[in-house]
């Protein structure tokens, strides 16, 4: 591994540019101060973080695929939704929640690999738009298949964390929110360690950044692309399984709004940066919660347009996202 790393110098940029970092720190201070003044503010912030990490983890799945193939996978949310249905089916067959949870992650991995090999690989070398259309087709196809098998009716799944509510310094925090945050963070850390410390992970980073060079030194980029799709599907499945309890019901449209926010989170973070997607997701989750509560004109109807308008403003100031770097292209 050291040999491979030496021959393929891969730049590692963890922190964003300084002005962005300052803005983020300022935002953190603002949230802390606000939370210490008002209980409602603190409660909204925690709930925002809990929904934000879910956006972030699905956004991370989008980033994984984008880094490897420069394509946004529109079917990511529906793949995640299908995985939640797999888990639901496993529980119907009598597995406990956590047994079903981990088997679903395994199934999701295989699911992602199969999709990449069967429908994505043949169009990969043609054009970006062709791959995008194929993922849109997958979106419709998976949606149809799930409705065909399980119906469009709402289903009920056992909750993983129960309905307990803790009080942390006077602020009510649901066990569900803590559980979501912990699980997503563990997954993200595991993924980071995988990319940082294993040979397969290094090969995938190399394949994403310098495909030709990686292939020359013996990295099997095609096989690793499939692994990338598998990992993205696993992350999506985690996001899906963590979304379901916050919605209380399972329906085929479960992940459609989440995909929207995940897309926004990934772009806000800069698309190239896994950490950026997570930070972007959390920022978006908190922003949505606070703006809906404190700006009454916005309410719940205009939440989405306002969030996207804010996102566009960020993009106009920094067209490559918070953590992105402008790449110089030779003509």
């Amino acid at each position: 591994m050291a040999e491979l790393a030496r021959r393929l110098p891969i730049p590692e940029r963890l922190l964003p540019a300084r002005p962005v970092l300052l803005v983020l720190v300022a935002a953190c201070i603002f949230l802390t101060v606000g939370s210490s003044i008002s209980t409602l503010f603190a409660q909204l912030t925690v709930a925002g973080v809990a929904s934000g990490v879910v956006f972030g983890s699905l956004g991370l799945a989008l980033v994984l695929i984008y880094r490897a193939t420069e394509v946004i996978n529109f079917a990511q949310g529906e793949m995640a939704m299908a995985c939640v249905y797999f888990a639901y089916q496993l529980m119907l067959w009598g597995l406990s929640y956590w047994a079903a949870f981990f088997s679903t992650l395994a199934i999701a991995f295989v699911f992602g690999v199969v999709i990449q090999q069967v429908v994505i690989r043949p169009v990969q070398h043609r054009s970006v738009i062709a791959v995008v259309i194929v993922t849109v087709g997958l979106f419709i196809l998976i949606d149809g298949l799930v409705e065909w098998k399980w119906g469009a009716n709402q289903r009920f799944m056992p909750a993983p964390f129960g309905n307990q509510v803790y009080r942390l310094g006077g602020v009510p925090v649901a066990r569900q929110q803590i559980g979501t945050i912990v699980i997503v963070l563990v997954c993200v850390l595991a993924l980071w360690a995988f990319f940082r410390f294993t040979k397969v992970g290094l090969g995938m980073r190399a394949g994403a950044l310098r495909p030709e060079a990686a292939r020359l030194v013996g990295v099997r980029t095609n096989a690793l692309l499939a692994v990338g799709w598998g990992l993205a599907a696993v992350l999506g499945a985690v996001a899906g399984l963590m979304t379901e309890p916050s919605q209380y019901v399972l329906s085929p449209t479960l992940m459609q709004p989440v995909l929207l926010y995940a897309f926004a989170a990934a772009v806000l973070g800069g698309l190239e940066s896994p950490g950026g997607a997570l930070v972007g997701g959390i920022a978006l989750g908190v922003f949505l919660n606070l703006i809906g509560q404190y700006w009454t004109f916005v309410g719940s109807v205009l939440q989405l347009p306002v969030a996207f308008a804010a996102l566009l403003l960020v993009l106009l100031v920094k067209p490559t996202g918070l953590f992105g770097h402008r790449s110089v292209r030779k003509v």
């Binding site: 429908v119 043949p122 169009v123 062709a130 259309i133 194929v134 849109v136 087709g137 997958l138 979106f139 419709i140 196809l141 998976i142 949606d143 149809g144 298949l145 409705e147 065909w148």
Partner: peptide, 13 residues
Amino acid sequence: DVVFGAFVILVML
């Protein structure tokens, strides 16, 4: 939806 999605993918392939 199943037929439409499958057709879209097939046509693109």
